[in-house]
Design a protein around this nucleic acid. Structure first.
Lengths: 194, 194
DNA sequence: CTCTCTTTTTAACATTTGTTAATGGAAAAG
DNA sequence: CTTTTCCATTAACAAATGTTAAAAAGAGAG
């Protein structure tokens, strides 16, 4: 399958896009690949882009005041990454984006993407879908961190991200769950015998 | 000071608004008051409005799966409450908004507000300012919940919301911090002797 | 002012989570 | 294949947080 077809398929899976709109999108799209471990968006760097993750796994993360890396969220294949206007403060990203595996991305300039979005209703619907998913995830994560035990959060994580636990470093999962990796390991052991 | 003047003052404090734009805003604005304890936005009810909190204190909250109330954020006097497009999923709010004290609000229909926003650059700047503040707060809260101890979170809370601890129920603060109110009480005691 | 109701504090104990360090195991490098 | 390095597990202990229930303090009603 061509990159274009793949891109189209991912978009459509989120919300249907007309041929016309997709053609316009293609005109502003480049395809990029990053190797496992590459940070393709950095905080404090100015560069407004939108990303559709065609293949692989990615995470967003920040550093807290102690300098520790804190995972904010994970992105699986076919996910449209948090739009820039929901991720940037004064034109600079407030999170880093890192490839957890080798990844392939469709990359679009944010300003041009928005131009198309304004005039194309199907893309607007797409954008709303993405935004609403973002909102739902954010609030769920916050509720979880504020009111669930580490064990419950891990169970939720497993429901949402099947198999991810076997693919990416546990330290990333632990910081996502707001626990240490020692605690994660303990919980994993406990849950085996249940 | 008239309600209008008060409204204007609150807006300006966030980002300057021209006379012309403000006049248009006033045409779609009503002023409402709610008594302490009133929930003026409910999840699952359809009604897209924007709120400027002229006076008093408000909170947003949700219920988790166990039915417990979880405080998401607090709003102080002069704060523009999380815009509907950042709070609603398919036209229905994903949080409840409650008055923690008697409050006064400037209330605007979201669709009409957006119409003005589209054509008025000063209002767009205002909107961006609000959005960016929202983003910054959200990410900070998430980092805190994921990587700070309860004690550190309480200290941050105090820095951000001076005096709030003496005004609103501790159960609301505890759920905001992701701890029980017994733990909150303990931390308060500890921090006295420091 | 007194009584009632609600909120906050305190206590005692259980449980969870963090810390540090050692062990084990798997992947990468030579 | 062996060695090295990195990551996950385990253990032992410390610290933080939750749970339950009782006491104290505050707020509101009559």
């Amino acid at each position: 399958m061509s990159l274009e077809d793949e891109f189209r398929k991912c978009m459509t899976k989120i919300s249907p896009i007309s041929d016309m709109t997709f053609k316009e999108l293609m005109a502003i799209t480049t395809f990029e690949t990053y190797e496992k471990g590459a940070t393709f968006v950095k905080t404090k760097k100015r560069s407004s882009k939108e990303f559709m993750l065609l293949d692989g796994i990615s995470k967003s993360y920040v550093h807290n005041l102690k300098g520790e890396s804190v995972t904010i969220s994970f992105f699986l294949e076919g996910k449209f990454i948090t739009p820039s206007f929901n991720r940037e403060i004064e034109g600079t990203s407030n999170v880093n984006l890192m490839a957890m595996t080798n990844i392939r991305l469709a990359v679009m300039d944010s300003a041009k993407f928005e131009e198309i979005l304004i005039k194309r209703n199907d893309l607007k619907t797409f954008g709303n879908e993405v935004l609403q998913d973002e909102l739902a995830q954010k609030i769920n994560k916050e509720i979880g961190l504020a009111s669930l035990t580490a064990r419950e959060r891990l169970l939720n994580f497993r429901k949402k991200y099947h198999q991810l636990e076997n693919i990416i470093p546990h330290s990333d999962i632990a910081s996502y769950l707001g626990i240490t990796n020692v605690t994660l390991s303990r919980l994993r052991k406990d849950l085996k015998n249940t």
